[in-house]
């Protein structure tokens, strides 16, 4: 497996699309290639960072304005 092929396989790995044989080949390549191992680890880390909900909190005032807008909409519909 070349490094270029490994990058594609890493993405497929995170999609759960590799067969056991393909995973074994990828793991063997990662074991031999420090660069690809880092791409593997930091791709996972990239996904994890964007999933970190606490980094993107919704301010209370935003929530409050949303509910005010909704209530105006409910009232419009009722009249």
């Amino acid at each position: 497996m070349t490094c270029k092929e490994a990058f594609q396989e890493i993405s497929k790995y995170y999609d759960g699309e590799l067969t056991n044989d393909e995973k074994r080949v990828l793991k063997e390549h990662l074991g031999r290639c420090g660069h690809c191992q880092i791409v593997f680890d930091t791709t996972r880390k990239t996904i994890e960072l964007y999933c970190e909900g606490e980094l993107f909190p919704m301010p209370e005032v935003v929530r409050s304005r949303l509910h005010q807008a909704l209530r105006r909409k409910f009232e419009q519909k009722a009249t």
């Binding site: 270029k4 990058f7 420090g34 660069h35 880092i38 791409v39 680890d41 930091t42 880390k45 960072l49």
Partner: peptide, 15 residues
């Protein structure tokens, strides 16, 4: 553009 150029490990964790 898709070929990685940075191979440094992210330590300590960015957070």
């Amino acid at each position: 553009q898709l070929m990685p150029r940075e191979f440094r490990d992210w330590r300590p964790n960015p957070e």
